[in-house]
Design a protein around this nucleic acid. Structure first.
Lengths: 110, 110
DNA sequence: AAAAGGTATCGTGTATTGCAAGGTACTGTG
DNA sequence: CACAGTACCTTGCAATACACGATACCTTTT
């Protein structure tokens, strides 16, 4: 899997997912890796950065299956940033699709 | 515009576009920037790298509107790489869409 | 209680790549 | 000649995914 495709998009995914309800890190890792090939070492630094930037608040909660889990809650600032990112993503992916479509017309890529 | 979204995707766009017919650099810059905000400083180094990696062959052609144009032709190796990238992009963007869709259900993002 | 295995988090260093900024040079017009 | 438009190129910086490793807790087994 091309690692470059993931740049910025994983941030978008995390923000969108955490906008629905609070998740803990390991849970996000597993949910994302069901759809995209990623490793833990990618998500944890990302969550830390987004928290430092004020987009997440965190709290700990005990678990009966292991150590306490750190939950991530999207702040108001985080919601605004998420909406901005989503909007940019829609605009960008539309641009890419326009390019791809017009150049695949009548092309069989044999 | 989030610069991170573009990582890897511009390479994909250039390869797909040049797969149809030969283009010169300035032409590619203008065509892409009609759909996505980019600058020359992004595309020229990209074309040079892809040429060094054997995905493009180049030739010069005189122009009556300015200096000679350097045309880029996709090699067989380039076509194989392009097809691989396209396949990975389809797989990746489907994964992202699955995540986005499932988390925007019933979400009004007020 | 010691060992093993799964759960959960965090930090460091590296490689890739988009971009701003700047430079070179050719052609045709005023 | 000056200027605008065309066309190409290079350097240095910033962002960030990932590999790798470390820490630590819990439950079950021996």
């Amino acid at each position: 899997m091309n690692t470059q495709f993931k740049k910025g998009v994983l941030e978008l995914c995390v923000l969108v997912m955490a906008g629905q309800k609070d998740y803990y890190g390991y849970e996000l890792v597993n949910m994302i890796s069901d759809n995209i090939q990623i490793s833990e070492g990618t998500i944890y630094p990302l969550l830390r950065r987004l928290t430092q930037e004020g987009y997440f608040s965190t709290y700990l909660k005990e678990s009966n299956e292991g150590p306490p889990r750190k939950y991530y809650r999207l702040t108001e600032q985080g919601k605004a940033y998420r909406d901005e990112l989503v909007s940019e993503w829609v605009s960008f992916s539309n641009g890419v699709n326009r390019i791809m479509e017009s150049f695949f017309k009548g092309e069989d890529r044999s």
